[in-house]
Design a protein around this nucleic acid. Structure first.
Lengths: 136, 136
DNA sequence: CTACGAGTTAAAGTGCACTTCAAGTCAAGC
DNA sequence: GCTTGACTTGAAGTGCACTTTAACTCGTAG
């Protein structure tokens, strides 16, 4: 299997080397073996990096992402702690999608309509807050 | 129209008073008239606060939110700058929803399946990254 | 008159996710 | 042997969105 320096991993993954070191110190990336002091990665690291980026971009903190990842690497069935986190995060992700959807509606509507006063769009907002589909 | 102190607004809107002052200094909330030095809000402030929270929760920065709000309050047709921002942000919101959807799929799948090794789920991830619906 | 709670300000502090810096190590090329 | 470039470390710095602090002013109740 191909062996990669931190610079190569950084280039291919599109993540700064400093970030990879940071993830390692934070416990998100396992410390790879060293060749004369330098990190020597296998290609498997890319999958791990993708998981980390996905989790962080979905709103996980570093600490939560660590638990999330540990849930995958344990040999035992998913730890209760991980399942709890996953369930809670699923709700958060749902809430995030809700907000994003509302913002999206608001942006799209504001392209179509020509509210001259903020108040009008606040009315839209109040409607959009609970159910979407109001006209402005 | 009802006049409200910063404390009342804070309580009813569920936002700390310090945050309202911060929004004012940042140019997100218009400075309300003062009664013997103290801020005297009208109920209209709640709509504005809702807009701000929605924008921030959808990933707008403070600066972007300021432009976004100014687009609504101008008497002229939407400023070009605002339309540009809105278009760009619409794309970002779409990307955010994409990532959230992938994270959601990943979380839901990891509830259903029992990956014993991280690698298996990385395979899922790679599939999920482009199109969703892979089985683990 | 005094005490109190709620408000005011500028300025400093916080937590997160990185990023940059300073000083040093290492292998390869000239 | 010396230089170069990529790497190493711990520590300090950055940007954002607040939050806390310190010292102060008000209006009202007792």
């Amino acid at each position: 299997m191909r062996e990669l320096s931190i610079g190569e991993v950084a280039r291919e993954a599109g993540v700064p080397a400093s970030t990879l070191r940071y993830y390692e110190k934070a416990g998100l990336l396992p410390a790879p073996p060293r060749r004369s002091g330098q990190r020597c990665y296998s290609e498997a690291v890319f999958g791990r990096i993708n998981l980390i980026r996905l989790a962080l971009e979905a709103g996980f903190t570093i600490g939560e992402t660590r638990v999330f990842l540990s849930g995958f690497s344990e040999q035992t069935p998913p730890a209760a702690r991980w399942r709890t986190l996953a369930a809670r995060k699923l709700e958060e992700v749902n809430a995030l999608m809700d907000r994003a959807q509302r913002m999206k509606s608001l942006l799209e509507t504001s392209f179509r309509c020509r509210c001259l006063r903020l108040e009008d769009c606040e009315k839209f907002l109040r409607t959009a807050k609970r159910r979407q589909g109001a006209s402005c």
